[in-house]
């Protein structure tokens, strides 16, 4: 099925693309609909895809394995299309000001359940720092 055109780039059918990438055709269509990758070079029966599609699918998988959802992958890819940063991808951070002079940063890509745990700890810390809790650092110094 695959042909070797003059420019050396292999052309792939949807099923070949699916097989080589390990991504089912329906999922590939879903990615195209969501704007994560371009449609085929030539549509219709015997639609043609390229090595670039294959590379894009690998890239999506890679982002997914790093814990990003498709929406987040889409944002990264949109950024990557403009210019590939040499420094690697930036990590998003949440900033929590837990006291007037204290700011804590948490990586934004943690799972919600982990984030909730972190927030609990920060909340406790904020209470301690504000002196509103029953215990305060002063008490410990007195001991």
């Amino acid at each position: 099925m695959s042909r070797e055109p003059e420019n050396g780039e292999r052309e792939l059918s949807l099923s070949e693309l699916a097989e080589r990438s390990g991504t089912p055709p329906r999922t590939i269509r879903f990615y195209i609909a969501r704007g994560l990758m371009d449609g085929p070079i030539k549509a219709g029966r015997g639609a043609i895809y390229s090595e670039e599609h294959l590379a894009r699918l690998a890239e999506i998988k890679d982002w997914q394995s790093k814990g990003l959802t498709l929406t987040e992958v889409g944002r990264r890819l949109a950024g990557a299309d403009r210019a590939r940063p040499a420094l690697g991808e930036p990590i998003g951070l949440f900033s929590y000001q837990i006291a007037p002079e204290v700011t804590v940063q948490v990586q934004a890509n943690v799972s919600p359940w982990r984030l909730r745990q972190i927030q609990r700890v920060l909340r406790d810390a904020a209470i301690l720092l504000s002196g509103e809790g029953e215990e305060s650092f002063d008490d410990e110094d007195d001991r």
Partner: peptide, 9 residues
């Protein structure tokens, strides 16, 4: 029409 890829939703 075989020429159109359906939009997946």
């Amino acid at each position: 029409q075989s020429a159109v890829i359906p939009k997946t939703m």
